[in-house]
Amino acid sequence: MVFFCLLLCKIVTLTLRNRIKIERAIMNITQQELADKVGVSRQTINSIESNRYIPSTTLAIKLSNLFDKTVNEIFELEGDD
């Protein structure tokens, strides 16, 4: 039981940070423009940028292709790994 609680705590502390906002600023494009390019809504891009939503693999690859970077360069797993 304790093990499972600890495991759960570990899962909860892990977060996926991303560099989308920075990359978007480098490319000088708005959230709406980025959303249009990858085929999602502006709100979804906003949610990803503020770490409220973890995108699917497909969307992550689309974003990395757009920024011409690898997925690992855009998304980073943070926390007690």
């Binding site: 809504s41 502006r42 979804t44 995108p55």
Partner: peptide, 9 residues
């Protein structure tokens, strides 16, 4: 109108 993976979730 703006259906995507987040809306589906």
């Amino acid at each position: 109108k703006d259906e995507d993976e987040l809306t589906m979730l």
